[in-house]
């Protein structure tokens, strides 16, 4: 009898769901609205004067956990500013092994490499999945995602003590009782915890503590 009643309840649930709108998104025809930070594929940017931002500093090539970025560059005189700087000879990014960790975007000091908001088109051969320099510059026309090196770094920088203290109101911790025995480290947000030794705080490639 229990089987019967519970079965009827289950039948009721499915009947209820017939009335709900289908949630399926028919992908190629309808494209789901992507969030601002949605990230896939890559693009290389040029600056306002139409000059390539990338100077071939190898930061992204070094940080990439999958080691899929390869580049070579030469130093030339810039036609715009007249200063000597690096120019890319070649740049490839192998999407077959990319894990979309966004580290290359984060480390780029010139905001040259950014990620796209639209996915990479599937290819028929593996070569289609390798982003060459030309493809990367073409991709710059497509909608870009929110993040670039500067913004990501800004977001992660430990807050400067003075302005942070002024801006941040201290919200009450949640209503839940706090176990008395447990020490609460750094309950106040104000003095930003800077465990990094002071010497490293300013240096650009942060050399952290070496015991």
């Amino acid at each position: 009898m229990g089987y019967l009643l519970d079965s009827i309840r289950a039948l009721g649930v499915t009947a209820k769901n017939i009335g709900r709108k289908p949630v399926t998104v028919q992908f190629p025809k309808v494209i789901r609205e992507r969030q601002e930070r949605y990230r896939t594929s890559f693009a290389l940017l040029k600056d306002e004067q139409g000059e390539e931002r990338c100077v071939g500093c190898l930061a992204c090539e070094r940080i990439c956990p999958s080691q899929i970025i390869h580049m070579s560059s030469t130093k030339k005189e810039s036609p715009v500013t007249g200063k000597k700087r690096g120019y890319l000879d070649d740049f490839t990014l192998d999407m077959t092994a990319c894990i979309f960790c966004e580290l290359c975007v984060q480390v780029c000091p010139f905001d040259a490499i950014v990620m796209l908001k639209v996915p990479h088109e599937p290819g028929y051969v593996r070569e289609d999945l390798v982003l060459t320099m030309a493809k990367l510059y073409e991709n710059a026309e497509k909608p870009l995602t929110w993040g670039n090196g500067t913004k990501l770094m800004e977001m992660q920088e430990p807050p400067k003590p003075a302005p942070a203290q002024a801006a941040a109101p201290v919200p009450a911790p949640a209503a839940a009782p706090v176990p008395a025995a447990v020490p609460v480290p750094a309950a106040a947000p104000a003095p930003a915890p800077v465990p990094v030794p002071a010497s490293a705080a300013a240096a650009e490639p942060a050399k952290t503590e070496a015991p």
Binding site: A15, N17, P22, T24
Partner: peptide, 10 residues
């Protein structure tokens, strides 16, 4: 069709 609608599919 019926099964799809029961499962919020098309």
């Amino acid at each position: 069709k019926l099964a799809a609608r029961m499962q919020s599919r098309i």
